[in-house]
Simulated assay, not measured.
Amino acid sequence: MYRQGIDSEDVALDMTRVILAKIEDESSSKEECEFHITPEEYADKAARKVACNRVRKLFDDVRDRYLDVFSPTEEITSSDTQLAIVISQ
């Protein structure tokens, strides 16, 4: 994230949140992966927001399950554009 020039509120914490979202997705029993962004989603601002919201929801699920660890208001603070870069990698 840092190498991509992402300057969210706290890039280290955001990276942790994104990793936790990825782990949440990979440990899910769902058939389809939610931690992804298609080239079409990446190119379109509205679709990019949808893809980023999928990833934010994954972190929200982790946060809500571990309220003894996370504040109820904790979230991924990177912009959609910044988060899309990370998701696409």
Rank of each mutant, 00 (worst) to 15 (best):
E26L: 15
V55W: 02
L20E: 05
I87G: 06
Q89H: 15
E74Q: 12
V55F: 03
S29R: 10
E41S: 03
V86S: 06
V55A: 03
Q89T: 09
T81P: 02
A12Y: 13
S29N: 14
V86L: 13
Y42M: 08
T16M: 15
S27M: 15
D14V: 11
F70G: 03
F70T: 03
E40Q: 14
M1V: 06
N53I: 06
D7G: 14
K57D: 04
P72W: 08
A21N: 00
Y42N: 05
S27L: 15
E41V: 00
F59P: 02
F59T: 05
K49A: 05
D60N: 15
A47T: 07
E74K: 09
Y2K: 10
Q82H: 11
A46V: 10
T38W: 12
Q82D: 15
C33I: 09
V11E: 01
Y2C: 01
T38E: 12
Y66T: 07
K45S: 06
V55I: 08
R65Y: 05
K22R: 13
Y42G: 01
P39F: 05
P39S: 14
A46Y: 08
F70I: 13
P72N: 13
L58C: 03
A21H: 01
A12D: 10
R63Q: 10
V50D: 14
A43S: 13
M1F: 10
L20D: 01
A12W: 08
R65F: 02
I87M: 09
S88G: 05
D44E: 14
T81C: 11
A84P: 01
I85R: 13
Q82W: 11
A51L: 09
F70K: 07
R54T: 00
S8P: 09
V62R: 08
V11H: 01
R65W: 04
K45D: 06
R3G: 09
P39D: 14
A43R: 12
I76F: 11
Q4H: 13
E26V: 10
K57G: 02
T38Y: 08
I37T: 07
E9I: 04
D80V: 06
V55M: 02
T38D: 08
K45F: 06
I37V: 12
C33S: 15
I87R: 12
K57W: 01
R54I: 00
T73N: 14
S71Q: 09
M1Y: 10
L83K: 03
L13H: 04
A43V: 06
K57L: 02
D80R: 02
D60E: 15
I19E: 07
R17V: 02
P39R: 11
K49N: 07
T77H: 03
N53W: 08
I19A: 13
R17N: 06
D25T: 03
I23F: 07
S71D: 04
R63Y: 08
K57H: 06
D64P: 03
A21K: 00
C33V: 13
S79E: 07
S78Q: 14
S27N: 14
V18Y: 01
E31H: 14
S8W: 00
D14N: 09
I85P: 00
L58Y: 03
V50N: 10
S71A: 09
